[in-house]
Amino acid sequence: MVRLLNYLNEHSVMLKRIFFLFLILTVVFDLYVKRHEIHFFGDAIIGFWSLFGIVGCLGMIIVCKGLSHVWLMKKEDYYDK
């Protein structure tokens, strides 16, 4: 198993390509999906969840890391002082 992981680690370019291919496929797949129940506007837009995923992810990192650095982050012995 370690060998398999080493092998994958050495071929990270290949992994990256597979990953991007997968991303494109998910959006293409979304083109052909039948929408039975539309609960709100987003359900009708093709690729909405892709956008939601990437924007949500980046937004969350920026907001949380930002809040943490500006306000919440303290040294580990903060409560001992």
């Binding site: 990953f19 959006v27 969840w49 956008l51 995923g53 949500g56």
Partner: peptide, 8 residues
């Protein structure tokens, strides 16, 4: 889609 693009 959600998981893939979060990975990205």
């Amino acid at each position: 889609q959600l998981l893939g693009f979060t990975g990205l």
